[in-house]
Write a protein that binds this DNA or RNA. Structure first.
Length: 502
DNA sequence: GATACTAGTTTGGGCTTAAT
DNA sequence: ATTAAGCCCAAACTAGTATC
């Protein structure tokens, strides 16, 4: 599993696991001890790494670079037109957090609107430049220089930002005519070779791993992101002349059709920011003494922790694990899938305790390790016949926990994921019973929408608290604006919330 | 001015098959 | 093995109007 995938998973967990004792401020801060958290902190400028920096000097607006052939190159860096533009930028700036990019990766199945958005842009990535903000002046200047040089040379670059890894630049090329994955890949190759030729003089190159159409799942926080609303279109049509395309797909975009490149991106970004703000707010409003207004997770972590100080191997669990007497504690409210029934007999106990521990760790990143261990001990004491010693359970758990937190052990691939099937999956299991299939879809739809409903009610409740705390007026309009939910829906749920209170 | 109601339209998740 | 496209549904949305 790639780091960005883990990030997404954790990120979701953060917003999901907000019940009961799950998330405290300390838990959130513990978050950054984990690989995911380190990634987040990288986004917050806590890392330093410098590599592949060519020799260069700056004189006024002139940049002088000595490339690998020892040739001297001059670049004019006085480019006013790279100034930030547009309301999209201001929205991003306001958000102060990274946000997820709409994209098929984190989703299952088709989503209306997916088709037009990602295929209009090609996402590329340059790696190995150095630390985004806090690096040496050399790395920082080099990054800025590369950024400007790229913008100057390629007017079809739509946006540039500091990449997710933190050591490079990510950027978007605005294209025409791309209408399929195949198209995307062909255009990507062509663009990558152009960029690579250009980047060679800096000792840099594009990251071939970014070719996957599903890669740009996260756009990291970057206060200096550049969005060029007036970027030109890359004439992908020319590259695609001889590409055979799959035929007969209804709904695909005709090559050459005039597309609105800006709206889907803008709308999605705007939505994501709103929901994230509410989520972050509710976490801190509920679980910390931190006051109202928009406290940003990133900021808080930055203030409270220095990532470089953490020794991953010293992570200890303090409770006494030596006694074999189990002091009864409430088990965690685990999901059905994690719920333990029956007995585990000798021969399977050790495997089971290891696997179950891994699942616990993986699925509960925001619970304290102590709490997870308690639960594991509970399962051992109640379902293992005969129970393993507490010490054994502890050893197994702490080994996995430490190694996972330090990033040395990635067991995400071997544990099973949460996949629920409400009904038989295969269509032949239904035979000709169309009604049964319809019933299945109906129920799936209901389940889904009930979940959405819960989310929305939750977000309205949080918005109410926010308004109360900030002295704003609690009415449907304000609630609608904060949550991004329409007034109509706010109205509907407000009723339910009031009834619930009575 | 804020809220509620109505009817028609759009959206998005879960599931499938098709394509590569 | 992975991902796009197609279909189902109920919920969410839009816009217009009525009522408190």
């Amino acid at each position: 599993m790639k780091t960005r995938h883990i990030f997404l998973n954790y990120y979701r967990k953060l917003s999901q696991s907000r019940d009961g004792d799950l998330v405290t401020l300390d838990d959130v801060l513990d978050f950054i001890k984990q690989p995911t958290g380190r990634l987040a902190v990288q986004m917050l400028n806590k890392y330093e790494k410098v590599s592949n920096i060519p020799e260069y000097s700056v004189e006024g607006n002139e940049l002088i670079i000595i490339n690998e052939n020892n040739e001297v190159e001059q670049v004019d860096t006085s480019v006013e037109k790279y100034e930030l533009q547009g309301d999209e930028y201001s929205r991003r700036k306001e958000s102060e957090v990274g946000y997820t990019c709409f994209n098929s990766f984190s989703r299952i199945g088709r989503r209306k609107g997916d088709m037009s958005s990602p295929t209009n842009f090609v996402f590329l990535d340059i790696d190995g430049i150095g630390n985004p903000h806090k690096a040496s002046d050399l790395a920082r200047t080099t990054r800025e220089v590369v950024k400007k040089a790229l913008l100057q040379k390629f007017d079809f670059i739509y946006s540039i930002w500091i990449s997710l890894s933190g050591f490079g630049l990510g950027f978007i090329v605005k294209c025409d005519a791309i209408q399929s994955k195949r198209h995307y890949e062909v255009v990507y190759d062509e663009l990558a070779s152009q960029f690579d030729d250009f980047l060679m003089s800096y000792g840099l190159n594009t990251d071939p791993n970014a070719k996957g159409f599903t890669q740009p799942t996260l756009l990291p926080y970057d206060p200096s992101i550049i969005v060029r609303a007036d970027a030109s279109l890359y004439p992908a049509k020319d590259v695609l002349v001889n590409v055979n395309e799959q035929k007969g797909k209804e709904g695909s975009i005709d090559a050459g059709e005039d597309l609105d490149y800006s709206m889907p991106l803008k709308e999605q970004v705007s939505k994501a920011i709103i929901s994230q703000k509410v989520t972050y707010y509710s976490i801190f409003r509920r679980y910390t003494e931190y006051p109202n207004d928009s406290i940003i997770l990133a900021r808080l972590i930055e203030e409270r922790y220095d990532i470089n100080e953490i020794d991953y191997n010293s992570y200890t669990i303090l409770n006494d694990q030596k006694s074999d007497v189990y002091d009864a504690k409430e088990p965690l409210p685990v999901t059905k899938r994690m719920y333990f029934e029956g007995e585990v007999k000798e021969g399977l106990r050790n495997n089971m305790i290891g696997l179950y521990g891994m699942k616990l760790i993986f699925n509960n990143p925001f619970r304290s390790p102590q709490r997870l261990l308690d639960h594991l001990q509970y399962v051992n004491a109640n379902h293992f016949q005969p129970p393993l010693s507490k010490k054994e359970v502890y050893n197994s758990f702490i080994y996995n926990y430490r190694n996972y937190m330090s990033g040395d052990l990635d067991f995400s691939g071997i544990i099973d994921k949460h996949v629920y099937h409400l009904f038989p999956r295969r269509v032949e299991d239904y035979g000709n019973d169309i009604d049964a299939r319809k019933a299945k879809q109906k129920l799936a739809s209901q389940v889904h929408h009930n979940n959405k409903k819960r989310e929305k009610i939750e977000s309205i409740k949080n918005a109410i608290i926010l308004l109360e705390d900030t002295g704003g007026k609690v009415n449907q309009i304000n609630l609608s604006e904060i949550t991004g939910i329409t007034r109509k829906t706010v109205s509907k749920y407000l009723k339910l919330i009031k009834e619930e209170k009575e």
